[in-house]
Structures are given as C-alpha cells and as structure tokens.
C-alpha cells in the first residue's frame, strides 16, 4: 500500500515536471524541472531496490549533465526564448496525433486477451526481495562485465564517436574569429607595436 502511494506520488511528480519542462519559457526553470523529474524517477528506481541506478541517475544526470547544461544556458544568457511562432499552428495537429496514438495504444493493450497479464506476475514487494548482504552495485557490475561486456564495449565506442563528432563539427577555424597565437605573441617586438609618426604642427586659424 505504501509502495503504491509512493509510486503514484512520484510518478505524478515526474510526469508533471516533465510537462512543465517542455512548456515553461524560461530555460533555467526548464532545466530545474528536468532535475525534479530526474529526482522523481530516481525514487521510482529505489522502489525497485535498484539503489545503484537511482544514485547514478542523480549523480550523473543531476550532478553533471544538468549543471553543465545550466552553465551553458547562463553563459549564453538566453533568458527568455521568443515564443515559437509555429506553436499555435502545430498545436492542434500535435494534440490530435498524440490523442490518436494514445487511444490506439489504450485500445490494444486494454483488451483482456492482449497478453499484458504477463507483466502482472508478482506483486512489487516480493519481486525484488533479496538475501542479506546483497549488493545491487556488485550484481550490476558483474552482469555488465560478463554477460553484457560486448554491449558495454560498443557503448564505449559510441561515446568515442560522439566526442569525435562533436569536436569535428564545432572546431572550425573561421577566418573572422579572433584567436591567440602564442607563437606570434612571444615573437612580438615593441618596435612593431608602436610607430612614432611626426605630424607637422598646424596653426589654428
């Protein structure tokens, strides 16, 4: 019972804050709503006794990704974004599509013979009960480096590609940008910097 209350409470928080995140106009607020959404999801992880995942979610997403994101937002000073001009135009279509998708999914999965009953095999509390001394982190680590080692390595490669892609797309020496060249800075002489020009004195009329 308590579990159900906690679950519904925090899933509501997660969904509402996710909605707020995409609808508020101030990007800093949007970022904070996202943080809230992550926190709520972390608590749902905890309900499944997946402490490690919950902590990682908070540490990595809230602690690192969102802080970085806030930095960018604040540095670029995009306080309030202009309201998208196409929003009102596309809104009805978007809502319609979402409604159609929702009801067709509801129709399919709401039926008795949909096969959804495979999900209701055990109640939540017994599903994740473990022996004493069980460590979620350790189990996860074992799985990650044994059964899923191949997937883990590919994911690592994916990150490397992401780095290469990001750098190759953004690192461009445009001719107009001003950048420092240490080589030239060091070899600068004062004769090159100051030129004394003699201007003949003119008398004011």
């Amino acid at each position: 019972m308590t579990e159900a209350i906690i679950f519904y409470l925090f899933s509501t928080v997660a969904v509402v804050s996710a909605l707020m995140m995409i609808s508020v106009r101030n990007p800093v607020r949007a970022a904070f709503y996202l943080v809230l959404s992550f926190f709520a999801s972390a608590i749902i992880w905890l309900l499944l006794q997946a402490e490690f995942l919950a902590i990682v979610l908070v540490l990595v997403y809230v602690g690192a990704v969102m802080v970085l994101f806030l930095f960018v937002v604040m540095m670029l000073d995009l306080n309030i974004v202009e309201k998208e001009s196409g929003f009102t135009r596309y809104f009805p279509i978007g809502i319609m599509l979402a409604a159609i998708t929702f009801f067709s999914i509801y129709y399919v999965l709401g039926q008795k013979e949909s096969g959804m009953d495979v999900f209701q095999s055990q109640p939540l509390s017994t599903a994740a009960s473990h022996v004493e001394g069980y460590s979620n982190t350790k189990e996860l680590g074992k799985l990650l480096y044994s059964e899923y080692v191949y997937a883990f390595e590919i994911a690592a490669m994916l990150l490397l590609v992401a780095i290469v892609a990001a750098i190759s797309l953004t690192y461009r020496r445009r001719p107009k940008t001003r950048h420092q060249n240490p080589d030239l800075q060091v070899s600068a002489r004062h004769e090159d910097r100051i030129r004394i020009v003699k201007i003949p004195v003119e008398e004011r009329k």
Binding site: A151, I154, A155, M157, L158, V161, A162, V164, A165, S168, L169
Partner: peptide, 13 residues
C-alpha cells in the same frame, strides 16, 4: 540497437 546507433551517429556527423 547499439550497432544501429553507432552507425547512425557517425552518419549524422
């Protein structure tokens, strides 16, 4: 899925 993402991500870039 991971193979697909590796392929797609490189292509986008």
């Amino acid at each position: 899925y991971l193979g697909l993402e590796l392929l797609s991500l490189s292509l986008y870039a």
